[in-house]
Simulated scan of single mutants.
Amino acid sequence: MMDYVEVRSSTVAAVGYDDSVGALGVQFLNGSEYHYFAVPKSLFDRLQSASSVGSYLNKFVKDAGYQFKRVR
């Protein structure tokens, strides 16, 4: 089960983390939702407090090549 936390961002609405499988969940303001797999919990912690959530997500998750699945 993934619990989401709202974040201040121009593109991201909320982020969540599932410890049991190491999955990062990202809900975007446009209504889409993605799960990224094998993401360290420390990355999720830093993402929540990043000065720019979208930029952090792009640089350390998307550009890093984590496998993902669109769930909504």
Rank of each mutant, 00 (worst) to 15 (best):
Y34C: 02
Y34S: 03
Y34G: 01
Y34D: 05
Y34F: 07
H35E: 13
H35D: 11
H35V: 09
Y36S: 03
Y36E: 08
Y36I: 01
Y36V: 01
F37P: 14
F37R: 14
F37M: 12
A38F: 12
A38E: 15
A38P: 12
A38K: 15
V39T: 08
V39Q: 05
V39N: 04
P40G: 04
P40T: 05
P40A: 02
K41V: 04
K41A: 04
K41C: 04
S42A: 10
S42V: 12
S42N: 13
S42P: 15
L43E: 07
L43S: 05
F44T: 03
D45G: 06
D45E: 15
D45F: 07
R46E: 04
R46G: 00
L47M: 10
L47R: 10
L47W: 06
Q48R: 10
Q48D: 00
Q48E: 01
Q48K: 11
S49W: 06
S49D: 07
A50E: 01
A50D: 01
A50W: 00
S51K: 15
S51F: 08
S52Q: 08
V53Y: 00
V53E: 00
V53N: 01
V53S: 00
V53I: 11
G54K: 09
G54Q: 08
S55N: 14
Y56I: 09
Y56F: 15
Y56P: 15
Y56D: 13
L57S: 04
L57G: 05
L57Q: 08
L57C: 06
L57T: 03
N58M: 09
N58L: 09
N58K: 14
N58V: 04
N58T: 08
K59I: 01
K59W: 07
K59T: 07
F60G: 04
F60D: 12
F60K: 12
V61N: 04
V61M: 02
D63Y: 10
D63R: 14
D63K: 15
